[in-house]
């Protein structure tokens, strides 16, 4: 089995789906001739031609609006937004049109668009190349939200997303685009949306995370001494729909929870996880739920290592929660 990084896995997922289904098209800024700024669409235009892999102007609202129209006519567009920070000009199209079409047409117009976009900090990208906007989309009924952490999941989840009947926001952790390497099966397979994965089994503390933070959490466990508290690390993989049973099942077992996310803390996705547990499993808790998150400031340029959850901060939260 080949050992690939996330970029190669995403590229292969697109290739597999485009070979299988002529309705799948790829579009976005520099995705065609150039193969994408991160090379995720490299070689696709050569194989599938400019009709199915095409460059767009710098106009995110236009890219997503066009994709929505194509989807309404039966295609399965996979637009790329070059950085998640640039998704806001397309926000009205995503929240008001993409998320609502299937519902308000009484199911007549499913809107099968998968928006791929790299997100997150840790690459010295400053304000406009570092944000983690997942909570905005998780808050919007009608959208699914997927964030893989490794190449195997990236390929299997992207294929599943393209085949899904609903619009999917597919956020790719760019900090580990190349650092996360692993075996990836060739050809066709899927990782079903809505299924979390236990990365490390344990009895002591449930640690909930996704995307690039899965790697930071594992560093806290393996290198910062958090293994001592026998954490159970769960990679959510799909934020919407959430694998509620996996989360609550683990919490009922350990009675202790640490939630790790790199987006701003207030009103972030981790607040939703904490609320879910406080509603459904409060009486199983032996300690208050801890959140380790991005600081509540705009994403800083020079201080990004202070802003992002570090292995040390995570290890400290695991220790404090275990000892409570």
């Amino acid at each position: 089995m080949p050992v690939w990084n996330i970029i190669q896995a995403v590229n292969d997922a697109l290739r597999v789906e485009m070979r299988r289904d002529p309705r799948v098209v790829v579009m976005g800024e520099d995705v065609g001739k150039f193969g994408g700024v991160f090379r995720a669409t490299s070689g696709l235009q050569e194989e599938f031609g400019v009709e199915r892999v095409f460059d767009t102007p710098l106009s995110e609202g236009g890219i997503i609006g066009t994709a929505i129209g194509m989807a309404l006519y039966g295609l399965r567009p996979v637009p790329e937004i070059q950085f998640a920070d640039f998704i806001f000009p397309a926000f009205d199209q995503i929240v008001n049109e993409l998320a609502k079409f299937r519902y308000r047409s009484g199911g007549e117009y499913p809107c099968k668009v998968v928006i791929r976009t790299p997100y997150g900090g840790g690459i010295r990208g400053g304000h406009y190349h570092s944000q983690s906007p997942e909570a905005y989309f998780a808050h919007t009924p009608g959208l699914k939200v997927v964030i893989p952490s490794n190449p195997y999941d990236a390929k299997g989840l992207l294929i599943a997303a393209i085949r899904d009947e609903d619009p999917v926001l597919f956020l790719e952790p760019k900090r580990v685009y190349r650092a996360a390497r692993g075996e990836v099966p060739e050809g066709d397979y899927t990782v079903p949306l809505g299924q979390a994965k236990v990365v490390r089994e344990g009895q002591g503390v449930t640690v909930l995370c996704y995307g690039a933070m899965v790697h930071t959490v594992m560093e806290a466990v393996d290198k910062q001494g958090a293994a001592e508290y026998d954490p159970e690390v769960i990679d959510l993989r799909t934020l919407v729909p959430l694998d509620t049973e996996a989360v609550l099942g683990s919490v009922r077992k350990t009675g202790r929870v640490v939630i790790v996310y790199e987006a701003p803390k207030t009103c972030g996705y981790g607040a939703e996880l904490a609320a879910l547990i406080a509603e459904k499993a409060l009486l199983h808790l032996e300690a208050p739920i801890a959140r380790v998150a991005g600081l509540d400031t705009p994403f800083p340029y020079t201080l990004e290592l202070e802003y992002l959850p570090s292995p040390e901060r995570i290890a400290r939260a695991i220790a404090n929660t275990a000892r409570f």
Binding site: A135, P141, C267, A271, A274, A278, R291
Partner: peptide, 13 residues
Amino acid sequence: HSSFSGEVIARVQ
């Protein structure tokens, strides 16, 4: 989902 109410609950718990 992922709303203000979640933040209130997260802080109170």
